[in-house]
Amino acid sequence: MSMESPLHHFELHPIIPMSVMGLDISINKAVIAMWIGSAVIFGVFMLVVKGGVSLIPGKVQSLAEMILEFIGGMVEEFIGEADRAKFLPFIASLFLFILACNLIGLIPGSYTITSQLVVTGAFAVGIFIMTLVIGFGRHGMHFLSVLVPPGVPKVMIPLMIPIEIISMLARPISLAVRLFANMTAGHTVLAVLFGLAMSSPLWVGWLPFGFTVIINGLEIAIAIIQAYIFTTLTCVYIGDVIKLH
């Protein structure tokens, strides 16, 4: 029996090759997983709205309300109550999409799109540009004062500006790398353990297989925590540029 590389299942191969003007837009596993992710979220919330929203919520409706209240509380805490209505749709979609994609990836044979740095990087860069637009929109040129923390002596300002620029640019990178690294690491561990279980005889093979099951449970917790951390930090970054110290 040949051993597969534990990183093998992160590789993507086009299922339906397509290209527009030299740009590769082939449909692969990741794209399909992304479609399923958004379809699941859309389906669940359509199920809530379809039967009509009632004043006394049923099971599905109270679950949906609980999730939205939870995200709403997060937005209020880090961005501010005044902006809740403005940012809740974005933050809620972000949280639910990442959560759905993380959880879909745990089904054996499916694909975790958040284990691709391109995907998390695209999210993070989008959020970073959004914070810049919000900051300049709210405060105009005064927004540049974000580069000088309050209470810094004048002598230190030339030193503080490059430090603040680096610390600001590091935020989207660490945001992207954190989600990507957590998902990739978890799935690599699962692949290694499963490889051990498959390549060893049954009388020892049950041990790594049992660990696969346990770690899969741990991965569910990590999927939820990472989606939560990603959205919390998004809220913190948006809140930072709105409050400006």
């Binding site: 680096i166 610390s167 640019l169 590091a170 990178i173 660490s174 790398v177 954190r178 690294a181 957590n182 741990l218 917790a221 990590i222 925590i225 990472q226 951390i229």
Partner: peptide, 22 residues
């Protein structure tokens, strides 16, 4: 344990990314 680990991991990444970027 998992919360502590995620916090530790978060700080580690924060530090490494900033040094790498600088």
């Amino acid at each position: 344990l998992s919360q502590g680990l995620s916090i530790a991991f978060r700080f580690g990444i924060e530090m490494a990314v900033a040094i790498g970027l600088g």
